[in-house]
Amino acid sequence: MQFITFPPSTSQPPVGLIVTLHGWGANAEDVASLLPFFRLPEYQFIFPNAPYPYPYSAIGRAWYDLRTENMFEGLAESRQQLIDWLQSLEGSTGVPLSRTILSGFSQGGAMTLDVGLMLPLAGLVVMSGYLHPDVETTAKSTLPPTLIMHGTKDEVVPLQAAIKARDTIKSLGVATEYHEFDMGHEISPQMLEVLRNFVVNAIG
């Protein structure tokens, strides 16, 4: 899997690892541009590119197809690739999954919930995301704490999708933090501030 990585700016070994998944039609560079706003200099960041080309742009990527006629095509393959890749990161970074935060925006947020609920991660962060209809979970004791954030004026992924995701994972026993923001389908500085607090509480 192709990715961009940024080591801690402190020149020390990373306190933890933050992986952020882009949305449908975006790419790793898009989310990597947000790095200064995370304000987590002790952490290593990794921004992977989704495996599939985006049908409407030469530079966009997709985790799976969202066009009606091919809805969710490629999801199973992306899921397995992402799981295998995340499990390999400790070998290259020295950071275990127990100190890794998986985060994502929109389709990347959906992948975060899908894959993150199957791995012993430190936490999940879902920004303007949703829950796949066939999401699987493991034993309740291993489910990582999850932060869900969504814009009340989101015209792409309705707010109801965030509420449904929150209620579903809460029912599984997941420690869930939920925030709504007065905005559309976007990542705001306020979102990243909440994310920062969540990461510090989850890892230190």
Rank of each mutant, 00 (worst) to 15 (best):
M1E: 01
T5A: 13
T5H: 14
S11V: 09
Q12V: 13
T20G: 00
L21T: 07
H22P: 03
H22D: 06
H22G: 03
A26G: 06
A32F: 08
F37G: 11
F37W: 14
L40G: 04
Y43R: 04
P48N: 06
Y52F: 15
A62D: 04
Y64G: 08
E69C: 14
M71R: 04
R79V: 05
R79H: 13
Q80P: 09
Q81H: 13
I83M: 14
I83C: 10
D84N: 15
L86W: 12
Q87K: 13
Q87T: 10
S92N: 13
G94Q: 10
T100V: 05
L102C: 12
Q107W: 05
Q107A: 09
M111V: 09
V115T: 05
M118C: 07
L121T: 12
L124K: 05
G129W: 02
L131R: 07
E136P: 09
S141T: 07
T142D: 13
P144I: 08
P145L: 02
T146F: 09
I148R: 06
M149R: 10
A161V: 01
A161Y: 04
A165G: 08
T168P: 00
K170D: 04
K170R: 12
S171A: 15
S171M: 01
G173K: 10
A175M: 14
E180H: 01
G184C: 05
H185G: 05
P189D: 05
V194T: 07
L195M: 15
N201F: 02
